[in-house]
Design a protein around this nucleic acid. Structure first.
Lengths: 204, 204
DNA sequence: TATATTACCAACCAACCGGTCGGTTAAACC
DNA sequence: GGTTTAACCGACCGGTTGGTTGGTAATATA
């Protein structure tokens, strides 16, 4: 791989492979091979495969949330906040598509409760949640945004940001010859276009 | 389980478990137990675990597409078509949340090409693809819909329909006390609300 | 220089995996 | 009544899995 420390090489390889193939489709031998480390080092540094998996999730979920927080800091609430969030969120995921898959896979494993690793980390980023949902509510109250449900709208936004990384094959089904990387890059403008036109209150 | 035939019981148990936990996290022993069948029956009827998995995907993807086709048949193109599609799609997924997960998991396994089982089936439902994308293009041309990219818009629609079944835990993170089943049921109206307001062309 | 400590590894193990096999049962067919 | 056939099953097999062990080499500490 490269000259990073063994622990880091293992964590990187794990995040990559877990994201690409899923926790149960990847063996500790696979991870050791990609990390160019001895298999025993996984248990030396992380204790168990499950703990390594949790460590990978914690690392990248924290990294993503931190990135978004920095990007939306200081942006005024309401529609500008939504635009900044979408741009930061999609930009982050485009740069690390395996991380998008890793997070989606972890979400899939839980139905009625948040994944433990994520609910541990979330309180540290409470600001983002409040900024998105609450600033949407405030924008509705002051008449800038139509009378929409802030939580449903937030889920709409996150859906459109994240889903392409799952749905690339669908796009290929609908339009086989497409340049998928370019399509994914262009998405952000179309998401913002739909949101701005669908949310902004018109002068009547 | 019940008094259905062994082959059907195996296929149902497989679809349920594969969707809930993922292909590699489910053993043939697990499937046999849930289907109340002997493990050897899986190989007797389906040949291999992989073939059973493919059979489950084919069955439910065909079922879903058939359901949607019936629901949008005869609906006029443009915005009414979009509304009918969203209603049929979300209604189907709400009734079978494990199928939503199964399909998402299969999509996750492929990056730049459609899953074979799906691209085999898709030609039979070419009408839906054309109706959604092409009728959107037509609606743009006749000025009913704003000048949006039909494919990007289609992906936006599918994103919002499907993602809740992945993102339920996110909703629980944002608002822990929520009644998630009700939230999911109510989503369809908010999706349609955003789409209608975001797509319809205003008289200027 | 003696002694911990840290990083590392080849070889190993019990449990479980997907898959097979030889044989049984019971209804269908002649 | 005898035979074919489809449905079924307990017991088994080679290979792989997550995880362990006993030990080595190098560096830091005293």
């Amino acid at each position: 791989m490269d000259d990073k420390e063994t622990r880091v090489r293992i964590l990187d390889a794990a995040a990559h492979l877990f994201g690409e193939r899923g926790k149960d489709a990847v063996s500790t031998t696979d991870i050791a091979r990609e990390a160019e480390a001895n298999k025993a080092m996984i248990f030396y540094y992380f204790g168990s495969k499950e703990d390594l998996y949790q460590a990978a999730i914690r690392k990248w979920f924290t990294d993503m949330m931190g990135n978004i927080r920095d990007a939306v800091e200081g942006v005024e609430s309401g529609l500008p906040m939504i635009e900044a969030f979408v741009r930061a969120h999609t930009a982050y995921l485009i740069r690390r598509p395996a991380m998008a898959k890793l997070i989606v896979r972890e979400l899939l494993a839980y139905d009625f409760s948040p994944p433990p690793a994520m609910s541990e980390i979330m309180p540290a980023f409470n600001g983002i949640r409040l900024k998105l949902v609450e600033s949407l509510r405030a924008a509705v109250n002051r008449g800038e945004v139509r009378d929409v449900d802030p939580l449903q709208t937030t889920v709409n936004i996150i859906s459109m940001d994240v889903f392409v990384f799952v749905g690339k094959p669908i796009v290929k089904i609908i339009e086989p010859g497409i340049d998928i990387d370019r399509f994914v890059e262009e998405r952000v403008e179309h998401i913002i276009d739909l949101l701005m036109n669908g949310l902004r209150k018109r002068s009547e």
